[in-house]
Simulated assay, not measured.
Amino acid sequence: MNAVASAKSVLRSRVKRILGRAGFDIVRSTRVQGGVDDFLPFEATMRAAKAAGLSIGDHIDEVMNGTPGATRFTIDELRGLGVYAAEPETVLEIGPGSGRYLEKTLKECSPGRYEIYETAAPWADYLVSTFGVVARPTSGSSLAPTPDGSVDLVQAHKVFNTVTFLCAVRYFYEMARVTRPGGRIVFDVMTETCLDPDTVHAWATKGGSGHDSYPAAMPRRMCVDLFETLGCTLEAGFPAPMGVASTEVLVFRKNA
C-alpha cells in the first residue's frame, strides 16, 4: 500500500470511529441513485430500537416514520386479498432493509425459500443470520441470479418511492420475469392517486428535505399497462401509509 492509500485508509477509519460515537454507521452501497442506504444506518438503528424497547420494525414505523402500525396495515390488507392463502413456496423480496415486512410475511406463510436482494451489506447479513433467508448478489436493478418463472410471490415495500424511474422500471421487468404463472407480484408506488394538491403541499412543506429521488412519483396507468404487456393482471390496489402521506400498493397476478 502506498503512502497516499495508507493515509486515506487511516482517515476513513478515524471518520468511521467519530461517526460511530455519534450513532451513525458507514455502509458500502451499490445503489446507483445514492442516499437510500443512509435512511437506515445499521448500528444506530439497532441501538435506538433496543433503547426504545421496540422491535426494529415497530421502531421504524413509530419513531423514524411516525406511522405506527404501517407495516402491519399492509400485511393485513394482503392477507385479506388472499395473497398468503396461496401458500407461496418461494418468496423474493427486493430491498427488505431492516426486514420489517419480511418478518411479518414469514408469520403469514411458510415458504421453503425466501430470497432477498439487499444492497446494504450489514442489513443483508443480519437478515440471513436472523431469518435464514438467501441473500442474492445485486447490482441495484436486476434479479439476474434468480431463474425465470421460479418464484411464487415477488414483493417490494417502500422501495420504488425512493429510486429513480428507470431503476424501478428495470426491476418491474425482472419481477415479471422471475414470477411463475399464477404467482403474485406486490409492490407500492406513489401514484397520482396519492398526490392530490393537499398531499403535494404536505410533502413540500413537512416531508423533510428528501434527496435525489425521494419521494418519487410513478404513473399508475403506466404500471398497469406495462405489467399487462408482461403477462400480468392487476388484481387489487390500496393506499398504505408513508411519511406525511401514502403510497399505493398494487397486487398483480402472472397469467397462466
Rank of each mutant, 00 (worst) to 15 (best):
G132Y: 11
S141V: 14
A44D: 10
L127F: 13
K16A: 14
W203I: 00
Q33R: 06
S246I: 09
T45L: 06
I75N: 03
N2T: 15
G66M: 04
H211T: 01
A22R: 15
M175Q: 15
G66W: 03
V186Y: 03
G57V: 13
F160A: 03
L166A: 10
P197G: 09
P41I: 05
V10S: 09
K107S: 14
A256R: 07
R28F: 01
D38W: 01
A240S: 15
I116Y: 08
R180L: 04
I94G: 01
G243C: 01
V128N: 05
F131W: 11
G112Q: 14
M242L: 14
T119Q: 13
R221M: 10
G207W: 04
G231Y: 07
T179E: 07
D38M: 08
T164Y: 00
E248R: 10
P88R: 12
M242I: 12
V32T: 15
D148G: 11
S6R: 07
R47P: 01
S98I: 02
C109L: 15
V159F: 01
V163G: 02
F252Q: 12
T30I: 12
E228Y: 08
R21H: 04
G140C: 13
H59P: 04
V244W: 03
V224P: 10
A70Y: 09
K50C: 07
M175A: 15
A121H: 09
R14E: 04
L11T: 09
D225I: 04
R12L: 09
E118A: 14
P122I: 14
P145I: 12
G97A: 15
L106H: 05
E62Q: 12
D76M: 13
P197E: 04
Y214H: 01
G23Q: 05
E192H: 06
G183I: 06
P122H: 13
L92S: 09
S150V: 06
G20C: 05
F227I: 11
V251G: 01
Y214G: 00
G132F: 06
G112T: 15
Y84W: 13
G210K: 01
T30D: 10
K206Q: 05
P215I: 00
T233K: 15
R100D: 05
S129R: 12
P241D: 13
T71I: 07
R28C: 01
T193S: 04
A70D: 13
V15E: 03
T191E: 00
L250V: 02
G57S: 13
F252C: 13
D148W: 07
C167L: 10
Q155Y: 12
G66L: 05
Y171M: 08
V133W: 03
V178S: 03
G140I: 13
K16I: 08
A245H: 09
S139W: 04
G149W: 02
T164I: 02
M1C: 14
L19G: 12
P96S: 11
H157F: 15
R170H: 02
L230A: 07
P215F: 00
I26T: 08
R180V: 11
T30H: 04
G95P: 12
L226W: 02
K50V: 10
D25M: 07
G207E: 05
G237K: 08
V134L: 15
A236E: 03
C167F: 00
A85T: 13
S129E: 15
K8A: 06
R220T: 05
S150Y: 06
E248F: 08
V244L: 05
S13M: 09
V163D: 02
A217I: 02
